[in-house]
Amino acid sequence: MKTSRVLFIFSLLTSTLFAQSDESMDALLDTFTHKSDLSEKTRLAYAGNVIIDTREELKRFYMSVEYLF
């Protein structure tokens, strides 16, 4: 019983470590998008009276200003 429990914990730990070291680029990009989305949602939820510019809008604005100079 004890041996099986130890084996279970060991396999759980190794699989977690393996999963962390071998994260695919797709998974990383998904996490990056998801976390950015969450911060965006929190902003929208808490700042109802503030005009929010999207990342795309800011980037386009920056590019147009950079083009002028």
């Binding site: 994260e23 680029m25 990383l28 990056f32 902003r43 808490y46 700042a47």
Partner: peptide
Amino acid sequence: LSLQLLAFDTKTASKIFDK
């Protein structure tokens, strides 16, 4: 609110740039 505005996922970004 100011903390939320500065939110940037540094940890995931570091893994992406590392790769």
